[in-house]
Nucleic acid binder design. Structure first.
Lengths: 150, 150
DNA sequence: TTAGATGCAAACGGTTTGCAGGGAA
DNA sequence: TTCCCTGCAAACCGTTTGCATCTAA
């Protein structure tokens, strides 16, 4: 068994997007794949403006409208996750489905810690049972600061 | 022991706000108390625009600027809670501190179920221990739809 | 008396929309 | 060739800011 290279991983992602586009009758434009690539080369969270600047710096000709449009598609096919950390602009994150996690945000500078606690699944399950609903997604975010020394 | 009337309850709230204003050297203007009263007469969630319209309908002369300003104070003294349910406008809710709860949002119409699961406190505690942080507040929201029948 | 609050309207900034031109199918 | 997609810029809309006026202290 051979180890997967990052290139292999991105190929898998590209394939997911391609199949999604085909299934929904959307065109496979070069812009869409360029944006996908740029996002998957990004670690951590980003917002549209940051992505726009980064692509401009990389000499890509792209418009914000296309970024919003494409992000919408990527959200729909589950390759990207959207967060609204209490600000009035959205932040996004590539979602590899490999590592489900939630967030702790530092109040002062917006830094992010990612964590995972399986008990969230228990809460989800009992919620679904109690109210006869089906959860499609959720958001758990803690806010705070470093523990102060006594 | 006599039962508390809603009026008593609001008096307690008014007192919290009054003391907060005094402590921080803010003026006790009639506008601020009118807004407080209007908010505590509101069930469920609301946004600034809705509150503004409601107060206009009640023939109050108030500006959006003052609403934003006052909400900020109410958030600071813990009488109101802010939510950002994935939309780009904020929603608020009076917080009585009597019933801590989280939310389930119906994807199609934005309806809200409030629930409480104590396991969230366990998650919070282990997060604080693991990362040496102190949680000041958090947001847990599930999104979904009614369970489909088989 | 005076510094903080208010109402109004303009500014701000992230997101959405309209439209002419371009390119995937 | 068709019509979906793109880039650009204007519009949109929730929120913030500037300023003249008012008022709680």
């Amino acid at each position: 068994m051979t180890k997967k290279t990052p290139e292999d991983a991105f190929e898998a992602v590209r394939k997911v997007f391609t199949e999604y586009l085909e299934k929904h009758g959307h065109r496979k434009t070069p812009e869409r794949f360029t944006i996908l690539k740029e996002i998957f080369a990004t670690e951590g969270h980003f917002d549209i403006e940051t992505l726009y600047i980064r692509m401009k710096n990389h000499k890509y000709r792209v418009s914000r409208a296309t970024l919003y449009n494409t992000i919408e598609l990527l959200l729909d096919c589950g390759l990207v996750t959207k967060h609204q950390f209490g600000t009035n602009y959205a932040q996004f994150e590539k979602s590899t489905k490999l590592r489900q996690h939630d967030h702790f945000i530092f109040n002062d500078n917006g830094d992010v810690i990612e964590f995972y606690d399986p008990r969230i699944e228990e809460i989800r399950t009992s919620l679904e049972k109690t109210y006869s609903v089906e959860v499609t997604n959720y958001s758990l975010t803690f806010y705070g600061h470093p523990r102060t020394k006594k």
